[in-house]
Design a protein around this nucleic acid. Structure first.
Lengths: 187, 187
DNA sequence: AAAACTATTTAACAAATGATAAAAAAGAAA
DNA sequence: TTTCTTTTTTATCATTTGTTAAATAGTTTT
């Protein structure tokens, strides 16, 4: 997805303000398997996905638990780094060869203080992330694993082709064995 | 908690900007049991809790599921209304007699467009809510019911005295019976 | 194609949680 | 206090999910 569309979808900007943001953005490519964010590190950039798919995971005891997927158009952010300048608890792994837009956090923070339109764009950016986070929270708390699986399929049908079931299972809050059972019962 | 402290804790403002916000805030009191937000309604205000405690819940089939608690200093926001001007899915019930600060959303939106400091205050406000939402998401996805219960107790010890176990159980994503069992096993 | 590796499913049993009903405890009202 | 109501716990059984191991399916390498 093109950077213009990504920026515009978040919040409409004046041409001047939009150019200020775009001047701070660079493009970069990474291969499948690349670890973009490392846990226990302060991340200094946020990214937007032009092409590809990624996941964020953290460890519980010895096993990875995926708690976020991102696809074309989605932002990749370590929120603890972005908001509090603190170490994040997650790795972000690219699940396909990816084309990304990179934006330095420090540069963006500066723009927030200088340009009111960009400040409101940044406000809206986080507001939209918050809505997503709340939706996911509600889904985890209100729905059964089977319902969550069906909802994920409906919202994002191609994820089955693009992501291993083990990652999807942990995203749904269950084991891979349990997801296999659920899939067997649905058919 | 005093409104000055609440505003300052979110993001430092110039005196002028802070006064602009404060001029838009009114105080109001409601008795225990008052329903502050109604589901399927566009809420036109956000609140901050000066004194008291509240919960947000939605229905799953016929039973209420609590997914948020707010106490002194916390904001009360229907995010769907605040962000998208759309109907929310939650009721908010006051669990004690409450003293609240009220801020009209429309008024705040106007300030966001006029004052860059307030725009950044509003950005920070949502960022902090997002961090909380992510923490809760991780807790639901990574930890067992027992671990979530112990974490809640640790983070907010007095909740046991102030809130019924039925509400706490649904907040933890389990039934009240299950929470009773967990409590029995811990001692 | 055969071998090696990875991903997914199935099976068997254990543990955790849900559902329902009843008992006990705690609080509120008469 | 006594009664009435609400809240919390306990008991029983059904269902779901976890754990471990093995079997199957699918890919990649040689």
């Amino acid at each position: 997805m093109d950077i213009n569309q990504i920026i515009d979808t978040i919040y409409p900007l004046t041409t001047a303000s939009k150019n200020l943001i775009k001047k701070s953005i660079t493009e970069c490519n990474f291969p499948k398997g690349h670890i973009l964010f490392k846990a226990n590190k302060i991340e200094t950039s946020i990214y937007f996905i032009k092409k590809g798919i990624a996941r964020a995971y953290a460890y519980s005891d010895d096993n990875q638990i995926t708690f976020w997927f991102g696809k074309e158009g989605d932002p990749i952010v370590s929120m603890q780094s972005y908001v509090n300048n603190q170490k994040g608890y997650e790795d972000v792994e690219l699940l396909e060869d990816c084309e990304l837009y990179e934006l330095k956090t420090e540069r963006l923070q500066k723009l927030f203080l200088e340009d009111i339109h960009i400040a409101n764009w940044g406000r809206k950016f986080v507001e939209l992330e918050l809505i997503k986070s709340e939706e996911r929270l509600i889904s985890l708390q209100f729905n059964t694993a089977t319902e969550r699986y069906l909802a994920l399929l409906k919202k994002y049908p191609s994820i089955i082709q693009r992501v291993q079931l083990a990652h999807i299972a942990s995203y749904l809050g269950i084991t891979q064995v349990s997801l296999s059972r659920i899939r067997a019962n649905i058919k």
